[in-house]
Amino acid sequence: MADELLTAEHLVKRFDDNTVLDDVSLSVKKGEVIVVVGPSGCGKSTLLRCLNALEPIQGGKITLDGEAVVYGSKNLAAIRQKIGMVFQSYDLFPHLSVLDNILLAPVKAQKRKKDEAAAEAMKLLERVGLADKAKSFPRQLSGGQKQRVAIVRALCMHPVMMLFDEVTAALDPEMVREVLDVMLNLAKQGMTMIIVTHEMQFAKAIADRVVFLENGEIIEDTDPNTFFEHPQTERAKQFLNIFSFERSKKDEKN
């Protein structure tokens, strides 16, 4: 149990009377890539948002690297620096250039030297193929480029783990690929990640573990092979059928 980076125990999240997460427990080992799948509204995004305390929880406990993650606590900013998060909608700051977007948190929150952080930012931008966009503003970028910058912005804080909340859901298919490739590379380098996605092929390729969430409960938590080839629950089978049906329809058209 020593190598567990993040644990969530018996999380309960309610919006008024609506229980979104119902006794969810999840633990992530260092270097592990967990993909969370499930139908819309099952609580996937809420789960991620609870993990870095963007949402208050009504029950349970979250621990990162031995420290409790508590909504509204004094050291929350410091804890969040360790968790990189990328959102579905483009969350770049529109009034700042790409480089300034990346440098804001390292310079203001971590009090790092601007030159040193900028050098690292440029190196990371180069790695995702966007070094020439450093001076551009977010509105001049495509959706896929924005998401890659958002990933770089999170990485520049040296997080111990990353959360991805349907980061390709708003993108054109071609741009999806370039973002997913960046994430695959991160996985290869050993980054600990929790990924919420609807890209099943990608999930199969990147996941060490797949968590299937429905109605706020984890009903399968297993390796990708078992999940995609031999799902244990009827509900997971139904869910996966939806995707294979969609795929065969596209095949016919082509």
Binding site: A77, R80, Q81, I83, S89, D91, F93, L104, Q110, A150
Partner: peptide, 22 residues
């Protein structure tokens, strides 16, 4: 948009910093 505040916070900025810079 609220996601602006949320992404600033999840980068580890304090609320005041997020307000001021973002």
């Amino acid at each position: 948009e609220t996601v602006q505040m949320e992404s600033a916070l999840s980068l580890g900025l304090k609320r005041g910093q997020a307000l001021l810079y973002v």
